[in-house]
Design a protein around this nucleic acid. Structure first.
Lengths: 253, 253
DNA sequence: GCGTTCTTGTCCATATTATGGACAGAACCA
DNA sequence: TGGTTCTGTCCATAATATGGACAAGAACGC
């Protein structure tokens, strides 16, 4: 079905907001927003400054970077309860982290992005804290994003990857690489990044689907590479797959 | 200065979102959004359904009411840190609640609304929990809103009250009543509601200003009426005023 | 059970808004 | 110092967003 007409400006504003959200508290320069949204500079400038007037965006004086403003968390207070996924995943994150010893992450799909919504640090003396809660990236950049893409129909995954193309350069990847990883993840049954977001690390992600079959989230282990040789990778993947199924059951009701 | 042109649709979408935020998890029917924003039904319908497609709004199947969607808290994760006001106010809320024995609320101004961002329950056996964190209302409806309006230039207060006119009916008040309360609050130096948001209660609010002199927040005590006779009202007001000044100092740096 | 009222939902001719090419000034860097 | 890159702005015009009119369904009252 065709998307609803008559609100192009609203969609554009949201596209801008999602780019600013990816920049978190550091903010994003105007040129980067122009580049990644594909909109023209006057258009981005106008959208951003209206959002500033409305308190949705703020401009950092010293750096001229734009970031999410205080009214977004204020609007979010209208929806304070954690999602069913977050609640359902809690014991699995705990169990998996204890069993594996490394850091566990819960990441959700939000539009064409991934967003880290929970993190559980393990007990092994070396922990790879590659991202934090709130970290947002284009789908395809992390092993979680790759896993989520792998779990959806191939054509839909290609559309999303194409939409994110302009943003991959900033994360030192590209469409061909991402699609290759998605294909490999389909084969393996989970996503994996030999080269994690951090040098010398490796991460493994399993997708989590909602009751209607949509891949909506992923659970990820990140560790130093030496801790994830072929045999241990298999063990970790099995633990993650089992807990992902448990989460899916819990969400189903 | 004239507000920036070229993004009326974005402002309208935000106006709709703020109405939905006021409805919190209960949601708001379409007709109510039409009435309070003053927009036409096709316009509101279109805006809401684009926001639904974008995950910003969701529609409750059973009640046909619209509410804030899951992507708003997800965007808010880009700005996780509590504001300086919230941090600065924490010890004052604690002290005032202990000294007074009733519930203390911290409320901020957000656009033409007030939003409760913190609440501290007192030790007296009867507590008036008139609102919760996340409760959003038009400026002018609560004693906190009245206090904030009283602390700003009269012309600016009148503009805000005029903008909120259509929404007052739902809270059983009107422009004349609100302006009367604002005038009284200017005289008293604090806002007060003999008839609180809850029958048989009374509330007292003192404004809190930012370093640039803008009234941005208020601290409120709510109690059963019998606990706030004239003399005790004076004592409570003095405690609130003192703590408000402390908070203003802490924000100032 | 029927009539009335109220609500949500949709269409599309047209009014109005949003756009972006062109230009200017500031900041940065070699 | 000059070149490059960035932010910011203008306004003629292209394109979008609008809302009056209408339809259908739900809720309510007698």
């Amino acid at each position: 079905m065709e998307p609803r007409q008559g609100a192009q400006a609203i969609r554009r504003a949201l596209a801008v907001l999602r780019i600013l959200a990816a920049g978190r508290e550091d903010g994003v320069p105007l040129a980067e927003v122009v580049r990644t949204t594909g909109l023209t500079r006057p258009t981005v400038h106008r959208i951003i400054h209206v959002l500033i007037e409305e308190g949705i965006v703020e401009r950092h004086e010293r750096t001229s970077r734009y970031a999410i403003g205080n009214q977004v968390p204020e609007l979010a207070l209208a929806r304070p309860r954690p999602s069913r996924l977050l609640i359902a995943a809690n014991p699995s994150l705990q169990r998996a982290s204890a069993a594996i010893g490394d850091t566990l992450f819960l990441t959700v799909r939000t539009g064409n992005d991934t967003l880290c919504v929970d993190r559980r640090i393990g007990i092994y003396p070396i922990q790879v804290l590659s991202i934090e809660v709130g970290a947002r990236r284009p789908l395809g950049v992390s092993s979680a994003g790759v896993a989520i893409l792998a779990a959806m129909p191939a054509q839909e995954a290609r559309k999303i990857v194409a939409a994110n193309e302009k943003r991959f350069e900033a994360y030192r990847t590209d469409v061909a690489t991402v699609l290759g990883e998605v294909t490999a993840a389909r084969r393996l049954g989970y996503g994996m990044r030999e080269i994690g977001l951090v040098q010398g690390t490796k991460s493994i992600s399993t997708w989590i689907k909602t009751p209607d079959g949509q891949p909506a989230a992923a659970m990820t282990v990140s560790a130093v590479r030496t801790r994830l040789g072929p045999r241990r990778e298999q063990e970790v993947a099995e633990i993650l797959l089992r807990e992902a199924r448990i989460i899916e059951q819990a969400i189903g009701g």
